[in-house]
Nucleic acid binder design. Sequence first.
DNA 1: TCTATATTAAACCAAGTTGTTAATTAAATA
DNA 2: TATTTAATTAACAACTTGGTTTAATATAGA
Lengths: 116, 116
Amino acid sequence: MRDPLSRTFAALADPTRRAMLARLSEGEANVSDLAEPFLRDMSLPAVTKHLKVLENAGLITKGRNAQWRPCQLNGEPLREAVDWMERHRIAWEDQLDRLGAYLKTKTKGTRHGHKK
Amino acid sequence: MRDPLSRTFAALADPTRRAMLARLSEGEANVSDLAEPFLRDMSLPAVTKHLKVLENAGLITKGRNAQWRPCQLNGEPLREAVDWMERHRIAWEDQLDRLGAYLKTKTKGTRHGHKK
DNA sequence: TCTATATTAAACCAAGTTGTTAATTAAATA
DNA sequence: TATTTAATTAACAACTTGGTTTAATATAGA
């Protein structure tokens, strides 16, 4: 999981982390602010670890203000992830169309076209 | 990693799998076609496993034609992933602007605003 | 029927992930 | 200075991931 794009997608592959990013998209927040919605589900060190994953993926940056660590979103890796997807999007939609057409012709019980 | 969106992002978090999707966005391909570019790096069963991950994420569907398993892209989960990202995109760009502005004001050696 | 081809399954392993609890660090404040 | 607050570190366990090799399955074709 060494390349940046993989690290970005891996960081997004967790609902807790996505929720943290969503929260951060509304503005800066300290670790404890970010942790608050999750403290019924997990411990604070677990939160710290999730934030570390986001930080390592370059998705957030942590500042410091006394004992607080104000976190900020960094949109750039997210943009690169969207870019990767957009680069293939047209092909996917073509594929969807083709699949749709295919399903329209077949769709007669023969789930796998079992050898005729 | 139970929710669909997480499974999609996790599936995307690997360069081999992304390359397979890219290949499939050009059209249907059998397992051995998809495997071919990677057989110097990994065994065929490893490829099968990657395809299983893509299949479990709903990103591809495998048909059958004699002993071949023609794989097709399924764009829908990808669209949902893009949707998630787009839902936050504007906020990210705001955040980028804010960060840019912030960096313009600070940026004087004091890497962490060490207590004044 | 025997063989070759395409693909998957099984058993295993090393490394990484995600959580825990207990201890530590650092700064603000009484 | 002692205490509280915010956050991290360390050590550990359970599970997942991504690879391996060997064996099995299914189909086509000689």
